[in-house]
């Protein structure tokens, strides 16, 4: 089956499916019975106190972390131990990190081209065209020849988003994309993410930006101590949280 045929046949199957996922770091139970189904085009915001397993959960989706129990499916592909399968799944999944993780020895343009050329085997010219297109979209095309170290945090994070988009992922994972940024740079990154959400990208965002959650999320998930405590549409989630822990968390981060 061609790749297109696969994605068509999966139009109704969930983009990401987690069933009974458990994970331990030694004796520490990080993820407890996670069940989560993300539809194609759905935008999900995951919040919760630090150490609640939010990042770990989304990092399991592209196997940056290994889960010990349960099943994960991405775009209909079951995540197994097989390296080929893991790499196949990673081709469907884009990821943006808290600390950007741009490659400091390469220019912005090379950062965006490298995986296109080595993973997708595109010729350099085509990869560069694609890269410039996405750098344009995150409004940073004029910095293409600079090295990451010469850019501000906000600019670097936008480059990281463009780098990920160049691979045409079907779902994007954001792991606290604005937590390492100075306050005045948060907005430029959020703007790009809002735009992406409006274009229909499937997104899972771990973030504390509740404004972002209110504007774009279809669903907000609250996690604590490795469990999903509550999930709901943003409006009821913020106005009428059910669990005590959610209420406490929301009062802490919205309270001031």
């Amino acid at each position: 089956m061609s790749e297109q045929a696969i994605s068509q046949s999966n139009a109704t199957t969930p983009m990401v499916e987690m069933r009974g996922v458990n994970k331990w770091y030694g004796d520490f139970h990080v993820l407890r019975d996670i069940n989560l189904s993300v539809k194609r085009g759905e935008r999900i915001v995951i919040c919760g106190p630090s150490g609640s397993g939010k990042s770990t959960m989304i990092r399991c989706i592209n196997h940056l972390e290994e889960h010990q129990q349960g099943e994960i499916e991405v775009a209909g592909l079951a995540l197994t131990q097989d390296v080929k399968r893991i790499e196949e799944i990673r081709r469907h999944v884009g990821m943006v990190f808290q600390h950007f993780n741009l490659f400091p020895h390469l220019t912005v343009l090379e950062n965006c081209c490298l995986a296109q050329m080595w993973v997708q085997k595109k010729p350099r010219r085509e990869a560069e065209r694609m890269a410039m297109q996405y750098l344009e979209r995150v409004k940073i095309a004029e910095q293409a020849r600079k090295y990451p170290g010469q850019l501000s945090g906000g600019q670097q994070q936008r480059v990281a988003i463009a780098r990920s988009l160049c691979m045409h992922p079907e779902v994007m994972l954001f792991d606290e994309p604005t937590s390492a940024l100075d306050p005045e740079m948060i907005k430029e990154v959020l703007d790009v993410m809002v735009e992406l959400a409006e274009e229909g990208m499937t997104m899972l965002c771990v973030t504390h930006e509740m404004g972002f959650a209110k504007t774009v999320a279809d669903r907000v998930i609250f996690m604590d101590q490795g469990q999903i405590i509550e999930e709901n549409a943003p409006e009821p989630f913020f106005n009428n949280p059910q669990s005590e822990r959610t209420q406490l968390f929301l009062s802490q981060i919205l309270g001031h």
Binding site: N62, L64, V83, E87, R90, R91, V93, G94, M95, F97, H99, N101, L102, F103, L114, A115, W118, V119, A160, R163, S164, M167
Partner: peptide, 21 residues
Amino acid sequence: PRGQEEAAAALGMGYWKRMGL
């Protein structure tokens, strides 16, 4: 930093590409 390898892995690069590039 570990993040470098993770970013490369998230882009779909295999072990030798992550190391070599």
